[in-house]
């Protein structure tokens, strides 16, 4: 718990949605946050958060402002990404045939608005082993659900009925709920720790190469 995140610059995709809440969570943990709206703002990031919002709106703006391809390239080169809610939808390869612009880089089958409309939005306590013993207050807003995952994907959190609501694949992390609304920064800490780990791996590779 003594990780120093102060050297990390984490982008927060700021096209639409609850991006300020992620900026605040990152700053509480000591990392630098940069709002990203244009391709130039993707330069030299250590990680990126794709926030909650409307996935159709964010997807269209990603396309309009030529962010889809640069982001796919960064994901391909191993940039750690954390997606919440709409971010999960944008990262998934399969959203059940809906046609909307996606990054489509993670082996997830995701159902949009899986629990219904706003009246079915809810909050609940989840036991998430990667975050320690204390339950995590998870807020689901017109949330998606992860219906199935590919072989390389590790599910991290489940609802009582077994629905997968958080997962990790290599350096991609997603949650269907909103840790940025709960004031509990453990999920963001998990992501930043993974960013640090990715950097250490990269520098170890450079050392071996030289």
């Amino acid at each position: 718990m003594t990780d120093d995140f102060s050297r990390l610059t984490i982008g927060v995709l700021a096209l639409q949605g609850a991006f300020i809440e992620h900026v605040q969570a990152l700053e509480r943990l000591g990392a630098q946050a940069r709002q990203v709206r244009l391709p130039g703002e993707l330069q030299s990031l250590d990680g990126l958060i794709i926030p909650g919002g409307e996935s159709t709106t964010i997807g269209q703006l990603l396309e309009e402002f030529q962010l889809l391809e640069p982001l796919r390239r960064l994901i391909g080169s191993g940039l750690p990404i954390y997606g919440t809610c709409a971010g999960t939808i944008l990262l998934a390869r399969d959203i059940g045939g809906l046609s909307q612009p996606l990054l489509a880089t993670m082996d997830l089958q995701v159902e949009r608005n899986a629990f219904g409309r706003q009246l079915q939005s809810f909050e609940t306590d989840l036991r998430i082993d990667s975050l320690g013993k204390a339950p995590f207050r998870a807020i689901f807003i017109r949330a998606p659900a992860i219906r199935s995952v590919g072989p390389g994907v590790e599910p991290l959190a489940w609802l009582e009925d077994g629905t997968i609501v958080a997962a990790r694949q290599a350096r991609l992390l997603v949650s269907c709920f909103h840790p940025e609304l709960s004031g509990d920064d453990r999920f963001h800490r998990l992501f930043l720790a993974a960013v640090l780990e990715a950097q250490q791996e990269a520098s170890a590779q450079v050392d071996r190469a030289s």
């Binding site: 700021a14 096209l15 639409q16 949605g17 609850a18 991006f19 300020i20 809440e21 909650g52 919002g53 409307e54 709106t57 809610c85 709409a86 706003q118 009246l119 079915q120 939005s121 809810f122 909050e123 609940t124 807020i139 689901f140 807003i141 017109r142 909103h178 609304l181």
Partner: peptide
């Protein structure tokens, strides 16, 4: 599981931010 808490009600508006 709790539905319709004030957090959940305000939460949807937070997701609409920056939008039209």
């Amino acid at each position: 599981m709790q539905e319709a808490t004030y957090t959940v009600k305000k939460g949807l508006a937070q997701m609409l931010k920056g939008g039209v």
